[in-house]
Simulated assay, not measured.
Amino acid sequence: MKKTKRILPLLLTTLLLGCVMLTGCGKKEVKAVESAQILFDLYIKQDTTNAEKIRLTKEEADSLVKKQNELLTTMTKKNFKNSGITVTDEELDSIVKQQLAAMSKVTPTIELVSEKDGISEVKIKSTYIDLVGADEKAVNDAIEKFENTNITNEKELLAQMTSEYVKNVINELNNIQVSADTKEETYKFKKDEKSKVWIPENMFEFGKGIGTLIQK
């Protein structure tokens, strides 16, 4: 039974977010710390509550969340296929939902480090989760359960181990624990004159960074 590699959908969502953000105009300035919080909540927690503050319409924010879910589903399905594991659509949907729910458990603390010459530096501290560890435990527990099995038919054995693994990984994601400590990174923000929203100077690096920040 091959191990499944789990990958969060960083690149596509980040690029989409950057493109949509710059289309709106606004009168009230949204400072770097508030913008970072809204982006973190939208991107990691799929919370669209304050998306309009960064000039995203409800439809645009909902569309981003939908695309993120679709990408995660596609990538997870591909990873299962590459590992020789077949899952039903219902099982795949459950795994994706639990992974997104696990991501939403983290808690960020965001503070302004400095603001000078049109650049704000923002520090994001966040608790994190161990997705790789959850996946490894699900695999190892499935292997251990059938280590001394009397099943001799390889096809039947693989099917039962796969079923056990899927059950295990859903359970591990559902019960995943958030770290007691935090990880931190600092990002540069600049003001977009059209929208009056402070946005990451490098949107790709910001998206990639916070995606890594929330994982062990």
Rank of each mutant, 00 (worst) to 15 (best):
residue 59 E to R: 11
residue 128 Y to D: 02
residue 185 E to Q: 11
residue 188 K to W: 03
residue 69 N to G: 15
residue 191 K to S: 05
residue 101 A to D: 15
residue 157 L to Q: 05
residue 1 M to S: 11
residue 173 L to Y: 15
residue 171 N to Y: 12
residue 102 A to T: 07
residue 24 G to T: 05
residue 29 E to N: 05
residue 97 K to T: 10
residue 174 N to V: 09
residue 216 K to V: 15
residue 123 K to W: 05
residue 12 L to G: 14
residue 96 V to R: 00
residue 131 L to N: 01
residue 23 T to D: 13
residue 115 E to R: 10
residue 186 T to M: 06
residue 185 E to A: 11
residue 16 L to E: 13
residue 150 N to Q: 14
residue 46 Q to T: 11
residue 90 E to G: 04
residue 113 V to C: 08
residue 179 S to V: 06
residue 111 E to G: 10
residue 54 I to V: 10
residue 17 L to A: 07
residue 105 K to A: 08
residue 64 L to N: 03
residue 50 N to A: 09
residue 4 T to R: 11
residue 78 K to Y: 10
residue 95 I to C: 02
residue 72 L to G: 02
residue 143 I to G: 04
residue 146 F to E: 00
residue 22 L to N: 14
residue 30 V to W: 03
residue 73 T to I: 03
residue 207 G to W: 01
residue 9 P to T: 08
residue 62 D to V: 04
residue 206 F to D: 00
residue 44 I to Y: 02
residue 25 C to H: 14
residue 161 M to Y: 03
residue 211 G to M: 01
residue 46 Q to I: 07
residue 162 T to S: 12
residue 88 T to G: 06
residue 210 I to P: 02
residue 41 D to G: 00
residue 67 K to T: 14
residue 116 K to T: 14
residue 213 L to H: 03
residue 137 K to T: 10
residue 15 L to E: 12
residue 208 K to Y: 15
residue 81 K to Q: 12
residue 17 L to G: 06
residue 63 S to C: 11
residue 170 I to N: 07
residue 55 R to M: 05
residue 136 E to D: 13
residue 167 K to E: 10
residue 66 K to P: 08
residue 137 K to M: 09
residue 66 K to C: 08
residue 202 N to W: 00
residue 186 T to K: 13
residue 215 Q to V: 14
residue 64 L to I: 15
residue 120 S to P: 03
residue 32 A to F: 07
residue 126 S to V: 06
residue 165 Y to L: 01
residue 119 I to K: 09
residue 184 E to K: 04
residue 184 E to N: 08
residue 94 S to A: 15
residue 4 T to W: 09
residue 86 T to G: 09
residue 18 G to V: 02
residue 23 T to C: 08
residue 163 S to Y: 10
residue 110 I to P: 08
residue 160 Q to I: 12
residue 92 L to S: 04
residue 131 L to H: 07
residue 141 D to V: 03
residue 60 E to S: 01
residue 134 A to Q: 08
residue 79 N to D: 12
residue 104 S to K: 13
residue 119 I to L: 03
residue 138 A to L: 04
residue 24 G to W: 07
residue 141 D to P: 02
residue 170 I to M: 02
residue 183 K to W: 01
residue 90 E to Q: 15
residue 126 S to I: 02
residue 5 K to Q: 11
